[in-house]
Design a protein around this nucleic acid. Structure first.
Length: 848
RNA sequence: GGCCCCGUGGCGGAAUGGUAGACGCAUCGGACUUAAAAUCCGUUGUUCCGAAAGGGACGUGUCGGUUCGAGUCCGACCGGGGCCACCA
């Protein structure tokens, strides 16, 4: 018997699809549109099986929609700016451009092997000058619209490498390369005004019903909306301090006012107070890493100033500088109410400040209520609070707000955790910020005709700090405004900017303007976006922001870029180490029957570690082209869709891959065996008996697989296909037409998942047209429905028998049949049933 | 510390409040074969009674609750994971 030759077959069909331009789509069509997108990859080197899972899922959706008659946009590109290219360039003394484009070439060839239904005519890399030119145009448009601004901001500064570090490059407060303690330094930086959209970004989440709830919750928390009040304290030196609080009701429980070490007033006071200056310096050196915050104890410095209580000018509160007050949230100043805030309580206990409970839980006595070491944050009634006494928390909040607003001392406000998006990066491998700094004219945008501001042809990494800043030629230019000598902004844009609008560029990758409105109007929003959970917050939030900004500028009519989001799990694999602790690739290890392993070709034992996410560093990766070579792409595709729900992590195993390969052969055999069968539907008259059962199984599979693919339940679709395959394989007593129908449908159902195999089988079944141009099958409702049903019969909730009976049989008849069951009679032991519950076509429960 | 998710055979996992374990992997037994590969048929939650046919009990992390009926809903706990985190 001929075996399926995946290698030959896959190459042949990929060439045929290419020749037919099967996946290139127009930007308009009478068909309904579907935009299917997977998060585009960073070209880090090579693709591993984990990547292919992501692209396979998207491909299944794209092919499925295509078969259903949609005009499907399914593009691919490269998120190509970023640090790994810089590191590679520095380490190997090569051009980051070279490294990146080489990787793209390799990864593209690997992806091509997977047979993805991608419109490659729309491909681009974000490091293409053609792409970042348009990004620079958008930046300037944002600038003119006031969406972008520049201000001094604190950054992580490595004093040895003389560069700014991203937060994740700061390890234990030290630079990851230099090991030097990182400093906070103020630099003029560009920001996107994302906070202007905070409320809208929050409200929009409620409309995203095809997003994972988990992701929406994460975004909600990230935006972090809290309602409260801003109000001012008069300070003994004549100044005012504005604070933000979500608990103005506890104002009579105040025992201090605390300023952030970075608060302007703190810095002013520090000028004449050396000890305060030292304290501020010390706070600055405490890292921003979470672990440090956990350990850091609450510390304060008494300024000697006092603040007058807003409701009682004679009540003076001490003003302290406290290390736990954040400058970046609210106003950078708080009033401390220790009884009802844990941080304030810890602080108050340490510095022996007053603790006055002002909210007392219902049922507790205000005179004896003591918070101990745990601040009370629950509901209750106000006490020790003059005119607020007896009110609920909400009533007191309203009353305080009313009085402070009436007195002009404060206002109700909404505060967000979300900050404006700092986009300046002191990095050479990114999109240059199209701005010129002129001594005379200040900040001047580059003229649009002069875009793109291209990166220099050679980037010299042999310098400390940002090579662009040290470039003797590139950096210097003429002022677009006055024509005098000026310098470029040597920062580049955060690479998250690159990925915040690429989905819009895909709508027309070759448009003369950044985005083509007509194409956006046609394609957006993306109907199904698929990617990793690691992008649940930043990338998706930035893209949502960008889309809103683009809308305000008239480039699109949608608010939300992604109507449906799906986050897929990672691919895992066992890890292996040699006796020296060095990681080993799976192919370097030979497993023995007793469960142990040795280093291949030696007698050295290899330790088998847990199955964890595939990563280059642990070497637990499987290269797709190796598997493609042995089993073909369809086997990988089938494996990554089988068994495990797509949102969960899945473990790659050789045994599992073998199983998929056997299934590929099974399908091929069934298709080639069906060659001589009569066409489907040629048996005159009715089908009955086993043939009817086969036809029913076929149409039920169509219905079930369709439903599962609609809902991205790939593992269940796979199980349905196995079920049909099993029935078909045991159908030698069925008539030929029913078998042919089952075989043809089976082939059409596997097509989105194993497209090459499906084409080959389709051809073997005698078809002259490609399956890729064949519509998705429709189930015959009459065959999906069945005439009879098996109903379980329970006595007191325990199964005692079952009856096979016509669908929709009258309740009484079902009841009688149930009571006549032998097992039921035995279980009843002659007792009369008290009650009989009949759930039509499902179950009978007899209560005895 | 806050919020969220998940606990089902040897493993991955199915199951609109209605026959728990579909489907796959692995296991074991058998057929075909000189043999192997490939393929096919059968087997597999635990336990008890029975020679067998068959029948009974238990079973979805633990303990309660709601219900005629709970893997599914509610409460508490145990275990694992995720996100945020001095956010006032």
């Amino acid at each position: 018997m001929a075996r399926y030759n995946a290698k030959e077959s896959e190459a042949r069909w990929q060439a045929a699809w290419d020749a037919a331009h099967a996946f290139e789509v127009p930007n308009n069509s009478p068909k309904p549109k579907a935009y299917v997108l997977e998060m585009f990859p960073y070209p880090s080197g090579r693709i591993h099986i984990g990547h292919t899972r992501n692209y396979t899922m998207g491909d299944v959706v794209a092919r499925f929609r295509r078969a259903q008659g949609f005009n499907v946009l399914h593009p691919m590109g490269w998120d190509a700016f970023g640090l790994p290219a810089e590191n590679a360039a520095r380490e190997r003394n090569i051009d980051p451009r070279q490294w990146t484009y080489d990787n793209i070439a390799i990864m593209k060839s690997q992806l091509k092997l997977m047979g993805l239904a991608i419109d490659w005519s729309r491909e681009f890399a974000t490091c293409d000058p053609e792409y970042y030119k348009h990004q620079q145009k958008l930046f300037l448009e944002f600038y003119r619209a006031g969406f972008v601004y520049r201000r001094e901001a604190d950054v992580n500064w490595d004093p040895v490498d003389m560069t700014v570090l991203a937060n994740e490059q700061v390890i234990d407060g030290k630079g990851w390369r230099s090991g030097a303690p990182v400093e906070r330094r103020k630099l003029a930086q560009w920001f996107f005004r994302i906070t202007d959209f905070a409320d809208d970004l929050l409200a929009g989440l409620d409309t995203l019903d095809r997003w994972p709830e988990k992701v929406r919750v994460m975004q909600r928390n990230w935006i972090g909306r809290s309602e409260g009040m801003r109000f001012t304290f008069d300070i003994s030196n004549g100044e005012k301090i504005e604070v933000f609080s979500t608990r103005p009701d506890t104002l009579f429980g105040a025992s201090f006012v605390a300023l952030s070490p970075e608060h302007p007033l703190t810095l002013e006071l520090a000028k004449t107070d050396a000890r305060l200056m030292a304290f501020v310096e010390e706070c600055r050196h405490i890292g921003t890493a979470e672990a440090d915050i956990e350990k850091a104890e609450k510390r304060g410095y008494d300024t000697g100033l006092t603040a007058a209580h807003p409701f009682d000018p004679n009540w003076k509160l001490p003003v302290l500088v406290a290390n736990f007050v954040l400058m970046g949230y609210g106003t950078g100043a708080i009033f401390g109410c220790p009884a009802h805030d844990q941080r304030d309580l810890d602080f108050a206990r340490k510095y022996h400040l007053t603790v006055t409970p002002v909210v007392v839980p219902d049922g507790a006595d205000a005179k004896t209520f003591d918070v101990g070491d745990e601040a009370y944050v629950g509901p209750g009634h106000l006490a020790n609070s003059r005119f607020l006494d007896g009110m609920t928390v909400d009533e007191a909040k309203a009353e305080v707000a009313k009085r402070l607003e009436a007195a002009g001392q404060g206002t109700r406000t909404v505060n967000y955790r979300l900050r404006d998006w700092l986009v300046s990066r002191q990095r050479p491998w990114g999109c240059p910020i199209p701005i010129v700094h002129c001594a005379k004219c200040g900040v001047v945008p580059v003229k649009e005709a002069d875009l793109p501001v291209k990166l220099p042809d050679t980037i010299n990494f042999d310098v400390r700090g940002n090579p662009l800043d040290h470039d003797p030629v590139w950096k210097h230019t003429k002022c677009p405004s006055c024509g005098g000598d000026a310098v470029r902004d040597t920062d580049t844009l955060d690479t998250f900017v690159d990925s915040s609008w690429y989905f819009a560029r895909f709508c027309d990758s070759h448009a003369a303007e950044p985005v083509n409105k007509a194409a956006l109007d046609y394609w957006l929003p993306v109907d199904q976006y698929i990617g990793g959970i690691e992008h649940a917050i930043l990338h998706l939030l930035y893209s949502r922001y960008f889309t809103r900004a683009l809308k305000k500028l008239g480039h699109t009519k949608v608010d939300e870029p992604f109507a449906g989001v799906f986050t897929q799990g990672m691919l895992c694999h066992e890890t292996y180490q040699d006796p020296d602790g060095e990681w080993l690739f799976p192919e370097q290890v030979e497993k023995r029957p007793d469960g142990t392993a040795i280093v291949k070709g030696t007698n050295k034992p290899a330790t088998i570690g847990p199955s964890i996410k595939m990563s280059k560093s642990k070497k637990n990766v499987v290269a797709p082209e190796v598997i493609v070579d042995v089993y073909g792409a369809d086997t990988i595709r089938w494996f990554t869709l089988s068994d495990t729900p797509p949102e969960r992590d899945v473990e790659w195993t050789d045994a599992g891959a073998e199983g998929c390969w056997r299934f590929v052969q099974r399908i091929y055999r069934l298709a080639t065996e069906a060659e001589g069968l009569p066409p489907a539907g040629t048996v005159p008259g009715k089908t009955e008996g086993v043939s009817l059962a086969l036809r029913q199984a076929t149409h039920r599979a169509i219905a079930a697989v369709t439903d599962d693919l609609e809902n991205l339940r790939f593992n269940r679709a796979v199980a349905q296909i196995y079920t049909l395959t099993n029935v078909l394989q045991q159908s030698d007593k069925c008539d030929g037409a029913a078998r042919r129908e089952a075989t043809e449908m089976l082939v059409r159902l596997i097509a989105p998942m194993m497209p090459h195999l499906a084409e080959t089988c389709w051809e073997a079944l005698g078809h002259k047209t490609m399956l890729v141009n064949t519509d998705w099958p429709k189930a015959d409702p009459a065959l999906v429905k069945s005439d009879s049903v098996t109903i379980a019969v329970q006595v007191n909730g325990k199964r005692r028998g079952e009856i096979e009976i016509a669908v929709d049989t009258a309740e009484d008849t079902v009841k009688q049949a149930a009571l006549a069951q032998e097992g039921v009679i035995r279980a009843l032991e002659g007792k009369a049933p008290k009650r009989v519950i009949v759930v039509p076509n499902r179950i009978v429960n007899i209560v005895a």
